[in-house]
């Protein structure tokens, strides 16, 4: 199982409690999250399935590398934190 938590800024738009899902990659974990909450997908991924330009995913404190396909591997017990990339002032 991996744990997926969301920035509080997203809670302005959607109910996004922290969830535990199965997934050996970030992509698989996201797919499991979206299966539970389909409307969440468009907030995290763009039309082509890439991570939105101003959204970041941290795994164990490091940003994922494959923003296009989210192929980064996950180990059991990993913690994903989905946040907005801060920009502007």
């Amino acid at each position: 199982m991996v744990r997926v938590a969301f920035t509080a800024n997203l809670r302005r738009h959607l109910d996004v409690p922290t969830v535990e899902v199965m997934g050996e990659t970030v992509h698989a974990a996201l797919a499991a999250v979206f299966a539970q909450n389909p409307s969440l997908r468009g907030y995290i991924l763009d039309d082509q399935g890439a991570l939105r330009r101003h959204v970041s995913i941290f795994v164990g404190g490091e940003q994922i590398r494959d923003r296009e396909r989210q192929s980064d591997a996950l180990s059991d017990g990993a913690e994903l934190y989905i946040m907005q990339a801060l920009s502007g002032g």
Binding site: N9, L10, H13, G42, Y43, D46, R52, H54, V55, Q84
Partner: peptide, 8 residues
């Protein structure tokens, strides 16, 4: 236009 989270 939610900015970070795309158009809705």
């Amino acid at each position: 236009d939610t900015g970070h989270f795309g158009p809705k």
